[in-house]
Write a protein that binds this DNA or RNA. Sequence first.
DNA 1: TCAATAGTTAGCTCTTGCGCTAACTATTGA
DNA 2: TCAATAGTTAGCGCAAGAGCTAACTATTGA
Lengths: 112, 112
Amino acid sequence: MAQYSVQLDGVFVALADPTRRAVVGRLGHGPMSVGDLAREFPMTLPSFMKHVRTLESNGLIRTIKSGRVRTCVLNRERLALVDDWLAEQRRIWEGRTDRLEQFVTDPEENTP
Amino acid sequence: MAQYSVQLDGVFVALADPTRRAVVGRLGHGPMSVGDLAREFPMTLPSFMKHVRTLESNGLIRTIKSGRVRTCVLNRERLALVDDWLAEQRRIWEGRTDRLEQFVTDPEENTP
DNA sequence: TCAATAGTTAGCTCTTGCGCTAACTATTGA
DNA sequence: TCAATAGTTAGCGCAAGAGCTAACTATTGA
């Protein structure tokens, strides 16, 4: 459970950067080499590589080096963690008594 | 669309911190004052307040001050942005030809 | 009216994140 | 064999993030 939380944290941190989200989007179309990916972003290769490493170390992608080319593959299962978290939030707020609506309708009631 | 991306970015940044995710979870049960929320986290009130401000400025919660008490309310609609993003990712990878499976099955084929 | 409560502001430290350049290794193909 | 290609490593600078303390304001309730 703590483990789960650490993983979730890594996934959210990885996705908090627009470049990395774009990479995820790009890899949704299929595997791609680091160089081909990098060409689409306005930064140097070493900078881009850091994003690749972040995505990989947080499990969102896997990479395989063959010859001098490193190919990146999306790891879709990892994105499911976000889905799960959202589902849990929904479960929480659907399970509660309807205090939110009460509050919005009549704020006084909740600050006695 | 750029606007959308900026908002999405804020949401992911806000959710990248475990304290802030926990606050979102906590507020799923209903509105709560800053003080009551803060009591559940191992940090000082000023530190905690920064998280509250981050959540608020990124639209994940709203806060209302009444007297000396500031009450926090979850803004569920904002979380839907994450849902939408995930849905788009799914749309992308379902729309593509099945290169991922090919790659996983036979990596050589994709690095000619 | 005055002490306690609830939050706020200012300002500091320390770490991490994101970008860069320069220089390097390893592979490839002519 | 040797130049071009693809990535890697090292190290720097700067900005932002997350925490803290100290001192402050505003409200409340006895």
